Amino acid sequence: MRTTTRSTLPAATAGATAVLALTTAALAAVVLTPAHAGAAGPPRLGGCGPGELCLWEKAGFKGQRHTYELAGTDIESCVALPEGGSAQAIANRTGRPVTTYQSAECAETGEFNTYPGTGTWAPESPYKVRAFKIWES
């Protein structure tokens, strides 16, 4: 989403405002939460419902989707995606924090990130997600 605003601020202040706007836009592109999604709301997530963790094969919530619920997932256990599978986009609607791992064994020697369970949408992971852990609140 691109917005254009006019300002009568001095050039130095307007430049700082532009940098702040770019920084905010860059952050919103990485991880979106309902509190930060703005008036337009969160991105369209398809069938990822409340209480679910959804992982998409491709960035932008595209490609094959894997869906997990608390009822079928052991808390604080490493859950690998199906053999050879990986994910590039994440929606955490479980109500609990979820850590995604580059390693299929949840090894912390590779990349990993934790997403809050309050409703987090990450349209593009900085690495291929191969496993995850759902944590106790």
Rank of each mutant, 00 (worst) to 15 (best):
R65Q: 15
G85Q: 15
A122E: 04
A91S: 07
Q102T: 07
L32Q: 15
A80K: 11
A14F: 01
T118G: 06
E69W: 14
S103K: 06
H36I: 09
A26E: 03
A71W: 02
T120Q: 09
G47C: 11
S86C: 10
I90C: 01
A16D: 05
A40K: 12
E124D: 04
V31C: 11
A37C: 10
G15N: 12
A18P: 11
T99I: 06
G95M: 12
F132I: 13
I134H: 13
T109V: 11
A26G: 05
A87S: 03
A107P: 05
Y101L: 07
A104M: 04
R6E: 00
D74Q: 15
R2Q: 07
G119H: 08
Y127H: 11
V19Y: 10
T23N: 15
E105K: 06
P34W: 15
A104F: 08
G110N: 07
W135Q: 15
G110E: 10
Q64S: 10
L45Y: 15
G49I: 00
E57I: 02
D74Y: 11
R65I: 10
P34S: 05
E124Y: 01
E76A: 15
W135R: 12
T33N: 02
N92S: 09
E52T: 00
A71G: 01
G72Q: 08
G117I: 01
C54Q: 08
L81G: 03
T4M: 13
P123H: 04
P97A: 15
G38P: 02
T4C: 12
A80V: 12
P50M: 11
L20K: 14
G38W: 04
G46C: 05
A28K: 14
G85F: 14
T4E: 09
A107H: 05
C48G: 01
L22M: 06
G119F: 08
T114R: 01
L20T: 12
V31P: 09
V30T: 04
A91G: 08
G41Q: 09
G95H: 13
C48D: 01
F112G: 02
E57H: 03
Q88F: 06
E52M: 01
A28T: 08
T8W: 05
V98W: 02
E111R: 04
F132N: 08
A25C: 06
C54M: 10
S137E: 09
G60E: 10
T73W: 05
E52Y: 00
F112K: 13
R44C: 05
Q102R: 06
E57D: 03
V129C: 03
P50F: 14
T100N: 15
C48V: 03
E83Q: 01
G95E: 11
V129W: 12
E52L: 00
L22P: 10
P116H: 11
E57L: 01
T13F: 00
A80H: 08
T23P: 05
G41D: 09
H66D: 04
